[in-house]
Design a protein around this nucleic acid. Structure first.
Length: 184
DNA sequence: CTCCGGATTCGT
DNA sequence: CGAATCCGGAGT
């Protein structure tokens, strides 16, 4: 298994969010490789996207989003839950894709249907903020077998009602019929 | 410095 | 539907 190349992330964010479906997320914890298959994502397009954290501009918190593609942006929400994104497009673009659900593949305990649940189940927390995804401890990779073909459902993003018309954009993607999607 | 509210989840 | 529980960002 080797990580997807930097060029995978250095593309249009919506394209990356769709391409990530079916890919594997791997995290090595104490010598054990935890693997989940990505089944649900959301695209956050940049500072002009009022639902994106980068809409606040370049701050200490958003600096990872403004950085180069292929890095993890991990943040704490509601004082208790970690959520993970992958940074997309060129440095300075400040776009990212949120991982919303994975299907357990290997060494995973607990539920994975939701951005915070998948982080908990895979042992992902703030220590991984800024981590390069071209590494051997946290990365995305192509599955060995491509698996059954699937179609992609497009829906409005979850929990961003404050973002005006951006809340209605169809920037949430998931594998049709997959039982591990957070809110089918 | 204080205040507000959040890319969520769980229990009532 | 409301609590949990911390901190980033905005305002004073």
């Amino acid at each position: 298994m080797h990580p997807l190349p930097r060029s995978f992330y250095d593309r249009d964010t919506e394209t990356v969010a769709r391409a990530m479906l079916g890919m594997l997320l791997a995290h090595r914890v104490e010598g054990r490789l935890r693997i989940g298959r990505i089944v649900e994502t959301e695209a956050y397009l940049g500072p002009h996207d009022l639902a994106a954290h980068s809409a606040k501009g370049l701050t200490k918190r958003t600096s990872i989003m403004f950085g180069p593609p292929g890095h993890a942006y991990v943040y704490l929400i509601y004082g208790m839950h970690w959520c993970m994104n992958v940074v997309t497009q060129a440095e300075g673009h400040a776009s990212a894709v949120l991982l919303r659900a994975v299907e357990p593949v290997k060494n995973i305990e607990g539920r994975t249907q939701g951005p915070a649940l998948l982080c908990k189940a895979m042992g992902i927390d703030g220590r991984l903020n800024g981590h390069d995804l071209l590494s051997d401890s946290l990365y995305l990779c192509r599955p060995r077998a491509s698996g059954d073909p699937f179609s992609i459902v497009k829906r409005p993003r979850i929990g961003v009602d404050y973002a005006g018309h951006w809340a209605r954009r169809l920037l949430r993607f998931y594998i049709r019929g997959n039982p591990f999607v957070s809110k089918p």
